[in-house]
Design a protein around this nucleic acid. Structure first.
Lengths: 246, 246
DNA sequence: TTCCGTCGTTGATTGAGATCAAAGGCCCGC
DNA sequence: GCGGGCCTTTGATCTCAATCAACGACGGAA
């Protein structure tokens, strides 16, 4: 699993990479490409970066140059508004693409920070555009990735606009569970990489409320919470919780 | 920075379905294209549809085939969730592109309805993808359009996640004002095409709350409200309202 | 190990917005 | 012009989550 280093003089955390050898093919950008096409992608996605917990991938205001695919680890993106408070806009795990929101203004509107030691692939955007002109399936898949991001954001809008605290937390846990499942991990047991405050920010709740809802869920036998460790005990009832509004 | 430009386009007698003759060039998909390239777009965007108030452009579940550019009028998109309540996800005016959220699943996740008599241009999506392979500037502009949608949604997430009722309504009014301005209309006086309930749904508030906030703004001399007719009296103070939390 | 800072939990109280309720206004079709 | 339905406003009350506050737990540094 040890990647080979290149040009350490430039950035010691930079490694060589190859989509064709990457186990995320089915999750990430290469989805649906032929072996031949993936090799072309390889030439584009050359740089991989390792990030320590707390390190930034990019900061709000940085010039947009590239997209970033999460290879391992866990990150958040957050938007800082005028009055100093920041809103977490997303949590990102293996195989997900970050930075799409920077295309429109050519500057990143938000911060992206690693919540644990992580590894990301750098995808120079103008080269991705070039390549996707030659590979229709890449082009189409990229459009789907962007569209999926829009759908995801709309789901959050719905959550924030019309759900009560318990429903929001339930939806959040189910979403994480489903994403871990898609990556071959347990659907019912995982570590939260983020603090209660970050969950709250994402869900439009205060950290105390998140904590209280966790406690209530625990009392009701829906989950077992121990700090950042979560075990979902009753997936069905959690699902009901978001289905049946009043 | 839009100087007065768009005035003649609303002449009801102009009916050419051609981007090259369309006064929305600067607002819509053709932005940044050469005359030659726009002519190629013309061949793609052939169909224009007129919609009566209340008619659907598409419905949730419909197969995704095309994007839709608003040529005139005003529309909303709304997401229906399992328990029957719908969340307005956006309001759409002249020059804006609808349907981007359908690309990912190849089905429209939401409904799109005209809130007044409207006219839309049908943009067959697979042909747009083809054409954007040949015209890099179209490709890039399209990516910007999608990205802008993501940024817009994140703005709404921030609004829903961290603003109080008055701030939300203020942000909403300022947003409309700014969008009308960009289209050459008055920044301070306009008709709301949607009901209080639709505003509330979009802002995560109940219709009564929206109404109360309008009344309070009126008392405070910020706006003059008369049913659906809005006049912004103090833009600066409205702006302050969203800047300074608490 | 101990100390300290961050993170999480829990309780008491407050407050913004939801809910319930009623009445008035506007628009559209007849 | 009239009637009915929808939209809007306003008041009274309730409720859920925010706020304020204190303490406890964990993890990293010395």
């Amino acid at each position: 699993m040890a990647p080979t280093k290149i040009v350490p003089m430039f950035n010691p955390e930079t490694f060589r990479t190859a989509c064709s050898n990457c186990s995320l093919r089915e999750l990430c950008l290469p989805l649906g490409l032929t072996g031949d096409e993936i090799e072309q992608l390889d030439m584009l996605v050359r740089v991989r970066k390792q990030l320590r917990k707390g390190e930034h991938v990019y900061r709000a205001g940085n010039r947009f140059e590239a997209l970033y695919a999460v290879r391992s680890g866990f990150l958040k993106t957050s938007l800082l508004n005028e009055d100093g408070r920041d809103q977490v806009t997303g949590f990102h795990m293996t195989g997900e693409i970050m930075g799409l929101d920077g295309i429109s203004t050519e500057h990143h509107p938000c911060d992206a920070v690693a919540l644990e030691d992580s590894e990301i692939c750098v995808i120079p955007f103008s080269r991705l555009e070039e390549l996707s002109r030659d590979i229709p399936s890449l082009q189409h898949h990229f459009h789907k990735v962007m569209s999926r991001e829009i759908v995801r954001d709309q789901g959050v809008m719905m959550l924030l606009g019309s759900m009560r605290a318990e429903e929001r937390v339930a939806a959040f846990l189910l979403n994480l569970s489903q994403r871990w499942t898609a990556r071959g991990y347990s659907a019912s047991e995982f570590h939260l990489r983020m603090t209660r405050e970050e969950i709250g920010s994402y869900l439009g709740l205060k950290l105390e409320t998140v904590s209280r809802v966790f406690s209530r869920f625990q009392e009701d036998g829906l989950v077992a919470v121990q700090q950042k460790h979560i075990r979902i005990l009753d997936l069905a009832r959690l699902r009901e919780l978001i289905g049946q509004r009043c």
